[in-house]
């Protein structure tokens, strides 16, 4: 089975997000980038499938964007991925999810994957759009927010469990297909020291606009239907009203305030 995994890196969850003075952009200086949390589940799942299905299964990781992604591709290689591809070109800059999906789909098409995995969303822009758009561009089936994957006996289908509001759907997926991964699917491994040493020597293939046979007007900012025009901080809440007295008075006063002041009951 040929497995592709789409990964990206995002600011570490503990990082403070600071806006530029004109609020047009985010200050990325000094921000620590790590592999997107949900992409870690995707890489781990690919590696577990490879262990289960045997040596003729390959895992190739993909990433689209700036040079800092190379570090995340190396992390995936150190975890055990076989090959890595970095999609990079000045023309890709400023792309929205759908424009980025065009590039990723083109790169994946050339590889002829049976299965493409990725995180359920990037915890930077939180759009959860890209993989679904890639599936559309490739004409593949998809299942999103998946917490369990079982490979069918003949390796041509999967039975997956995906989370929906108030429950789960059990979905039969014919391969080739795209699956987005949710927390609970597995416990991502740490890269081993020999893995890290080996990953340093592996080549990371670079592909740009012309190698992928794309034109500049269909990708990046030029190929995007949406653009971010600015940012704003969260609204400050007024200071908390601490309720006085013993538990009985506090409870009574809270109920009164929720009804009479906040008017939510």
């Amino acid at each position: 089975m040929k497995i592709g995994v789409m990964v990206k890196n995002v600011p570490d969850t503990e990082s403070k997000i600071k806006l530029s003075a004109d609020r047009k952009s985010i200050e990325m200086q000094g921000v620590k980038f790590v592999m997107n949390t949900y992409d870690e589940f995707a890489v781990e799942e690919a590696l577990q499938l490879k262990e289960k299905l045997g040596a003729d299964t390959t895992v190739t990781v993909f990433s689209l964007g700036p040079e800092r992604l190379v570090e995340t591709l190396r992390t995936a290689l150190a975890m055990g991925a076989d090959a890595a591809v970095h999609l990079t070109d000045p023309a890709f800059e400023g792309g929205d999810s759908i424009a980025n999906a065009k590039v990723l789909a083109k790169a994946a098409e050339a590889e002829g994957f049976d299965l493409i995995l990725g995180g359920k969303q990037g915890i930077d822009f939180d759009s959860a759009q890209t993989l679904s758009a890639v599936a559309e561009f490739l004409g593949m089936g998809q299942a999103q927010v998946v917490t369990d994957i079982e490979v069918g006996g003949d390796n041509t289908s999967l039975k997956v469990r995906r989370r929906i509001e108030g429950g789960d759907e059990i979905v039969d997926v014919t391969l080739p297909a795209i699956i987005s991964c949710e927390k609970g699917l597995n416990e991502p491994r740490y890269a081993s020291l020999p893995g890290i040493m080996k990953a340093k020597k592996k080549e990371i293939k670079k592909l740009g606009l012309s190698e992928l046979g794309l034109s500049a007007d269909e990708v990046g900012a030029a190929g995007s239907g949406t653009q971010v025009v600015g940012y704003s901080p969260l609204k400050e809440r007024p200071p908390v009203k601490m309720l006085e007295g013993g538990p009985a008075e506090q409870a009574k006063e809270l109920v009164r305030l929720l009804r009479e002041e906040a008017k939510v009951l």
């Binding site: 403070k16 930077d124 995007s224 653009q227 940012y231 969260l234």
Partner: peptide, 15 residues
């Protein structure tokens, strides 16, 4: 829309 896990809001416009 909230971005960066709700740490800031992004203002987005369509073509």
């Amino acid at each position: 829309r909230p971005v960066y896990s709700g740490k800031v809001y992004a203002h987005v416009e369509a073509s």
